[in-house]
């Protein structure tokens, strides 16, 4: 495999994404968790850039890294939460999960190494915002509209869940 700048960038970004996710799970401080999650989002946006999906990358930064992470941090700061979280001690769970993830990783790596891809690399240069718009309001209009109902439902649901009992 040829080592190019793109490969190095991909390597660093994916390491960052994975580390962010892992730290998010293992940190005990909520703020730290939020920050490490933001790192993951950010690195994924970087990968999008590498794939020439500029629009998606920007959206990723704006929505996930910006809005969602910040919103979460706000939420954490404005609510009370236990500083000292009890550390759960479940060695069997940890062991099995890590072993399972390991097996999955090994088989996936073996799988992708052994596979032969037929399709040539697609030139993604032309894939911009225009194309996305066309797809959304053309081919995928029905699922797009359906997604709006999905969001509406999610909104209703979060209101129900978040509303305090006994409050009108």
């Amino acid at each position: 495999m040829e080592i190019t700048g793109e490969f190095i960038a991909f390597f660093i970004l994916s390491i960052l994404a994975i580390c962010g996710a892992v730290f998010m799970i293992f940190f005990t401080n909520v703020v730290h968790m939020g920050v490490s999650m933001a790192f993951t989002f950010l690195s994924i946006a970087g990968i999008y850039f590498l794939l020439n999906a500029d629009f998606l990358a920007v959206i990723q930064i704006m929505v996930y890294t910006g809005a969602i992470s910040i919103l979460m941090l706000f939420g954490i700061m404005m609510t009370r939460h236990k500083e000292t979280e009890e550390k759960l001690n479940r060695p069997i769970h940890y062991g099995l999960s890590i072993a399972g993830a390991g097996v999955l990783l090994v088989s996936l790596v073996l799988l992708s190494r052994g596979a032969t891809f037929v399709s040539d690399a697609v030139d993604t240069k032309g894939y911009g915002i225009e194309k996305i718009g066309e797809l959304f309001f053309g081919t995928y209009m029905i699922p797009f509209e359906l997604a709006s109902i999905l969001l509406l439902v999610a909104l209703i649901g979060s209101i129900i869940i978040a509303k305090k009992e006994g409050q009108e």
Partner: peptide, 30 residues
């Protein structure tokens, strides 16, 4: 929508709409 589609995106969004609505239906008896 899930029933009337042969496109994975509609199928999946239909499925998610079904799922998310069910999540809330299950948890709403607070």
């Amino acid at each position: 929508f899930l029933a009337s589609s042969v496109d994975v995106i509609t199928l999946f969004i239909g499925l998610e709409l079904l799922s998310i609505s069910s999540y809330i239906l299950v948890g709403m008896r607070k």
